[in-house]
Design a protein around this nucleic acid. Structure first.
Lengths: 228, 228
DNA sequence: GTATTTATGATAAATTTTTAACTGACGGTA
DNA sequence: TACCGTCAGTTAAAAATTTATCATAAATAC
């Protein structure tokens, strides 16, 4: 597969393509043009063709894209076929929700184990994944190749645990804590799921809309006043 | 406050500023320059000044920004002082995690109630928030001004619930289901928290890094071969 | 079998976003 | 109180991203 330097914006769109393609396949759609795909995702056909062209030529002139074939290409671009492994740290509410509801294998990941400090949980299983003591973390990492650590510990523990992880070979963290782990001069990959950032963005957009509506109302008011 | 059309990229950075400013305040820092703030966030000073200039003049030449004052400005930009209200639909794992761990009020939101179909949960409380039957949804919405619906129902229910919500006046959804709700020709604001998208982006970056390392190793190999 | 339509991939243009440069206000200091 | 250095806000330049255009290949219709 072609692998030139691809912009961040493109990469953030690829998972959306995957999701849409799965949806199309399920609906029995076998081919789709960049135009129709764009319609469904709110993107221009140009952008879609440009995005895919970063990785190769997956379409056919006069036909469009084969849904199943493109889906496989996209999955491969994202590394879903590489058998990445993960461990989860912190079986609190979020950790449990992930273990219970989030199907790691559906996205190409293998969740090897979870780690906890709560003695009531240690030794038990959740969705077929064993929960180990945090004391076993280092030895486990020494024995297994782990690509990603899912960090779902309380805020206070985040930095301390991160240090233990990186000291023992972890080079990618999926971060559910509200702590900014991203260290500019570190080679650790950190992917943040900051709930608060997301909600605050939404809060901004709602505010913006309310302001616009208020301004529109005020204009209408003035106009009505000038009329009489 | 100034409110020109601000790009999406800017808006996505504002919550990060808020988080960092809170962190600085907690550490006792009272003033900060765009240069230092940039250092800590991995952004250029220019970009930070440019971002804030979309909304007004919050700094002082020769001094920098007052951390506490800027924090309040940023909070106001995001609408945190507007007293937005929310309800939560679906007290499954994710819903429970949000009610338990996510402090809505910390971000200016008031979580009025949750809604569930499971009879065991209906009538109970979680973190001081009452759980009502889904049957009461319409009447509740008729009686309360609700700005945001937090959608944490199973995938299958997502579209059906969304329709009920929008039919009853909900105009903003914080979506935790893995369903693409965003309808291009709708005025409903949807903010998605797609775990899978996030993980797959990380998966891409890990793949990219592995490929680079493999390529580097191969080059070194060839060089060593040419040497002898 | 030929013409016509469809729709890609490549290239070019337009737009947006980011970065750099500049001006001048303010604070610190002697 | 006058000087110097700092640093915000603004303007301009550069870079990146998105959109439009075009040439052409494949599919479909006749």
């Amino acid at each position: 597969m072609k692998r030139v330097k691809v912009s961040n914006n493109v990469i953030r769109r690829i998972p959306r393509y995957l999701r849409k393609l799965d949806e199309l396949a399920e609906a029995g759609v076998t081919r789709i043009s960049s135009f129709d795909l764009g319609q469904q995702l709110g993107l221009t056909p140009s952008q879609i063709r440009q995005d895919f062209s970063c990785f190769g030529e997956f379409g056919q002139q006069g036909y469009g894209y084969n849904v199943a074939a493109l889906r496989e290409q996209v999955a491969s671009i994202l590394g879903m076929d590489r058998g990445f492994t993960a461990i989860l740290i912190g079986v609190g509410n979020i950790g449990r929700a992930l273990m219970d509801n989030f199907c790691f294998s559906e996205w190409g990941f293998h969740l090897l184990s979870a780690f906890e400090v709560n003695p009531d949980l240690i030794g038990t299983e959740l969705s077929g994944v064993s929960i180990r003591s945090m004391d076993e973390l280092e030895s486990f990492l020494a024995e297994h190749k782990v690509d990603v650590a899912v960090l779902s510990v309380p805020k206070e523990a985040a930095l301390r645990v991160t240090e233990r992880l990186t000291k023992n070979g972890i080079r990618a963290i999926w971060n559910f804590t509200n702590v900014e782990l991203t260290d500019p001069n570190s080679s650790i990959l950190v992917e943040n799921v900051h709930f608060s950032d997301s909600l605050l963005s939404l809060s901004y957009f709602i505010s913006e809309r309310k302001d616009e509506e208020a301004a529109r109302a005020a204009r209408a008011e003035r106009l009505a006043g000038a009329d009489k």
